[in-house]
Amino acid sequence: MTTSFLLIVQIVLVILIVIAVLLQKSSSIGLGAYSGSNDSVFGAKGPNSFLAKVTFTIGFLFVVNTITLGYMYSKSAEESVVDNLTENTNVVAPAAKETNTSK
């Protein structure tokens, strides 16, 4: 249950970080041109400082979530279905039947 929630959070973080990177100003204007006047929304310095902080924060959360998911999956991988099966059952081979081959 917890790993599925963290996996959904991971997907949302990926989408958010892609959007944050695409909105940043590059050598060409990029997708930031379609958002209108950014100076009034993000303050006097413009979107560069704000989007850089958002990108860093989302990137940090992405890395922390990735490490947490890796730890949780490695813990669940320590137990094997086969190990649990052999510990709980006693398998006894059937006795061999004698066959009469002297006809």
Rank of each mutant, 00 (worst) to 15 (best):
L69F: 03
N84A: 02
S35K: 08
P47E: 08
N48W: 06
I8K: 15
Y71W: 11
L23R: 01
K103Q: 14
T68H: 00
A95G: 02
P47F: 03
E79K: 09
V81N: 05
P94K: 01
T55Y: 12
Q24L: 01
F62P: 00
A96F: 05
S74F: 13
S40N: 14
D83Y: 00
L13Y: 05
A93M: 10
P94L: 07
L69I: 08
P47A: 14
V12T: 04
N90A: 13
I19H: 05
S26C: 08
A96W: 00
I19A: 09
K75P: 04
V21D: 10
N88H: 10
L85F: 11
I15T: 05
T57N: 11
L23H: 04
E87L: 09
L6M: 03
L69S: 04
K25C: 02
T101S: 07
D39I: 15
G36R: 01
E79L: 09
A77L: 12
L85R: 04
N48A: 13
T99Q: 12
F56Y: 14
S35V: 14
A52V: 04
A96G: 01
A44S: 13
I29M: 14
G70H: 09
N88W: 03
P47T: 06
T99H: 06
S102C: 10
V92A: 11
F50T: 07
N48C: 04
N38K: 11
V63H: 00
T66V: 10
N48S: 14
T68K: 01
I11P: 02
I29W: 14
Y71M: 10
G30R: 03
L13H: 00
V64N: 01
V63L: 09
F62T: 10
V54N: 06
S80E: 05
S74R: 09
I15L: 14
T55M: 07
Y73R: 15
I11Y: 11
S28M: 10
F56C: 10
L69D: 00
T3I: 11
L6V: 03
A52L: 05
V92G: 01
F50R: 04
A33L: 10
K25R: 06
S4E: 08
D83A: 11
K75Q: 15
E87N: 13
I67M: 08
Y71H: 08
V9Q: 06
N48P: 03
V64M: 12
S76C: 09
I17C: 14
S27I: 13
N65M: 01
E98T: 11
F56I: 12
L22R: 10
V21E: 13
V41E: 01
N90V: 13
V91W: 04
A33Y: 12
S26T: 11
G30S: 08
V41R: 12
L6D: 00
N48L: 10
S35N: 12
I67C: 04
V81F: 13
